[in-house]
């Protein structure tokens, strides 16, 4: 069963989605089998959340809304996990 789930979260880290959290986010995304994409702001382009290179180039700033979209068996879990990570201020 494959479903598409979306969610969004505000980036609270004062430095935005910088290199260290980008690594965490990518690693987390890779732990799900669903396809997971993110974009920064409503007008942003969807990029593959499992590609560190793409996530690092996203340069999502503090205060930006990060959209998360997942398609696959564990789509719900993937979206929730990524949003939790951002909410925890990237730990």
């Amino acid at each position: 069963m494959s479903e598409t789930v979306t969610g969004q979260v505000v980036i609270n880290d004062p430095d935005g989605l910088h290199a260290r959290p980008a690594v965490k986010l990518t690693k987390l995304a890779k732990s799900f089998c669903s396809d997971i994409a993110i974009k920064a702001g409503d007008d942003g382009e969807w990029i593959n959340a499992k590609s560190l290179s793409a996530v690092m180039k996203l340069k999502a700033r503090h205060g930006a809304i990060l959209h998360v979209r997942a398609t696959g068996e564990d789509a719900r879990g993937g979206v929730d996990a990524l949003i939790d990570l951002i909410k925890q201020n990237m730990g």
């Binding site: 690594v23 690693k27 560190l52």
Partner: peptide, 10 residues
């Protein structure tokens, strides 16, 4: 090194 390690860690 960061990119390769991230990929390898998964």
């Amino acid at each position: 090194a960061i990119m390769a390690s991230t990929e390898a860690s998964c």
